[in-house]
Design a protein around this nucleic acid. Structure first.
Lengths: 204, 204
DNA sequence: TTCTATATCCTCTTTTTCCATGATTTTCAG
DNA sequence: CTGAAAATCATGGAAAAAGAGGATATAGAA
């Protein structure tokens, strides 16, 4: 028997998965949590084999929760679950220890296959998710330093170089250097495209 | 008996609602469509009393589909359905003839209540949706014109005023005017914050 | 029909960003 | 310890955007 637990704040999705799985052989439905906090509370009492985890939770992101659960309970496999087929989300979930990722339009077969694969310790990506993740061009997120990330955030907030300089207690020319470096790393022509890329990559 | 049809590309949600409704009294489940095209095809054959309609469909937006169905079949009540509790979406659905709006985290009771109210010709908004709709301000997407949207897209791509002017065959000062207007409507200080807001609102 | 919103165009000034080309200090991993 | 990466600072000039204050034409709604 595979013990399944689900974390998702959408009642209809929870109900859908429960309905799909209740007649499937070898599945032990342990229940569900509507948010990260009650998921963590549940895990102090019981340990499922697999957690189906939504990315959008009311109290914290599924991406953060994934990391936390994976660190505290390395034996539990996590299967990411969301409406969005966005490469940055999938990537982050996998980076944070998820064993797989499926979309909410997945079929029963796909869901069962995912559960079986993950149970065996393998990884599973649904067709569409895999396609997205392995897309060739695949807007790779550039490797930026923490200071650059800080500056990028303030730039996106609409602060000018001088304002950022004041806030960080550095010279405005230094801010400019970081900015140039960001434009280079993102291969962006100007601030507008830089901010768009960063936003679409989920960095800001 | 209330004849119910659902349009949603998320299999798990469809399954969840079907599971919730199949034991409810007075509900006649007519089936579901995964996209706008097959919904319209279905309606040429049969006429449900109520359509549960997702906002995000693969082929066209639920907002457009709502308008189309409402015009062609005024007798069918439409109940908007989505993950997003965003004011502009709710507003647009209601403007386009929807009789109500519920979120995917609604309970069975809420769903049944919505169906009953809508069946009687009344409107129903789920608690959270109603709260959002009547919220004074928050992150409302500004009403921008099609030309402004066009310019916004090109700005976010990293084009300068001159480049945009060339591409649209207008003067660079006109582009500047549109840009100023965008900054005003978004209440953004500069391009960086404008692009960030637009990206986070999903406009670009 | 009149009014309003949209789209178009203009000048001038100031601010900010972008570009090129440097340099010094700090920090951290091998 | 030592070198590489990161973070810091600088100058001077070119390009672009922002801010202020206009104007005209047109299409659609009241």
């Amino acid at each position: 028997m595979t013990k399944i637990f689900i974390v998702d704040d959408h009642y209809m999705v929870v109900e859908g998965i429960r309905s799909l799985l209740q007649n499937a052989p070898g599945i032990d439905w342990m229940g569900h949590a509507m948010n990260a906090a009650s998921c963590l509370a549940f895990l102090q009492q019981q340990h499922p084999d697999i957690i189906l985890m939504d990315i959008n939770l009311p109290d914290k992101s599924g991406i953060d929760l994934c990391k936390e659960v994976h660190n505290k309970y390395p034996g539990i496999f996590i299967l990411g679950l969301s409406t969005f087929n966005q490469q940055s989300f999938i990537q982050k979930m996998m980076d944070n220890g998820a064993s797989g990722y499926i979309l909410k339009n997945a079929s029963l077969d796909e869901l069962l296959e995912a559960i079986n694969e993950v149970k065996k310790g393998r990884t599973f990506l649904s067709n569409e998710a895999a396609a997205t993740l392995h897309k060739p061009d695949n807007t790779t997120i550039p490797l930026i330093t923490s200071r650059e990330k800080e500056v990028l955030g303030l730039v996106a907030e609409g602060l000018t170089n001088n304002e950022i300089a004041q806030q960080l207690f550095i010279s405005h020319t230094t801010v400019e250097t970081h900015r140039k470096s960001l434009l280079n790393k993102f291969d962006a022509k100007n601030t507008a495209s830089l901010v768009r890329m960063a936003a679409q990559m989920g960095i800001i």
